[in-house]
Amino acid sequence: MHPKGKIAALAAFALLLIAAFVFYKSGTNWDYVLPRRLVKIAAIALTGAAIAFATMVFQTITNNRILTPSIIGLDSLYMLIQTFIIFVFGSMSPMVINKSVNFFITVGLMMIFAALLYKVLFKEGRNLFFLLLVGIIFGTFFGSISTFLQVLIDPNEFLIVQDRMFASFNNVNTDILALAFALTALTVLYAMRYAKYLDVLSLGRDHAIGLGVPYDRTVRQLLIVVAVLIAISTALVGPITFLGLLVANVAHELFRTYRHSYLLTGSVLISVIALVGGQFVVERVFTFSTTLSVIINFIGGVYFLYLLLRESKA
């Protein structure tokens, strides 16, 4: 099938799932059910799109299909921020209850962290893997502190922390959602300035420079875009570490092309399908006995192991 056909099929499938999600067993109480489901579906689509876009770009910059941007420590930082706030101010603090305040604090701190990390490391040199490894070490560092705080926290408050450990689409605030939409749209729009370079960047640094890509600047800008998108989606719903890995690889397998116009659109659609479909199954089949992000991470992780062991394309 031509890539355009595949995109159309994916889009149709995504729309079908969304329709099913919104209208399935909606009962007669439309005024109540419909707006809530629409908000949820919007949050899901936004998160899915942001993560898929960020991961695809990230994998192209790093020339690697086995990395995901969450590993540069943003997930762990998110957990640390949440744990720290609950530990110091208690679970009744406005910083925990008021989602907007929490969203701003989290996104702000994550951006500061990413900016500092990039700033220090770009001065140092330009080995991308070095940057990632340093990010991971910071992740372990944040993780150590969070775990320590979690042990000290009162068991009741721990439940609230545990709640934050897993992404959830169930109580997304409409105000933040609109804001997150605007921020994501602006970021993606900005990234589009560099989109034409993505195909060439997948040839690797040397070829990209040789073919006239302003490499250092492009990679920096795109890494910032990636950090912003991941920060927004994580602050909005919580960490889903392996979603990006899953959908980016499925997109590569499905499209088998180097053209990012198809890859990006495709991975965004696959991501929406995975999340909406997954949420549908979780709500209607498992009836909330587990959370979507745990399942996605599980499936993503297993699929990824399979890819690694089958044939290394790294």
């Binding site: 997948s202 040839l203 070829h207 006239g212 890509v213 490499y215 180097y258």
Partner: peptide
């Protein structure tokens, strides 16, 4: 960048490419 790329091209000794072309 692209002006220079229209003037000079370079081919390195290792040309490992990760994608299928």
């Amino acid at each position: 960048s692209n002006e220079l790329a229209r003037t000079v091209s370079i081919l390195k000794q290792t040309n490992h490419i990760n994608i299928r072309l």
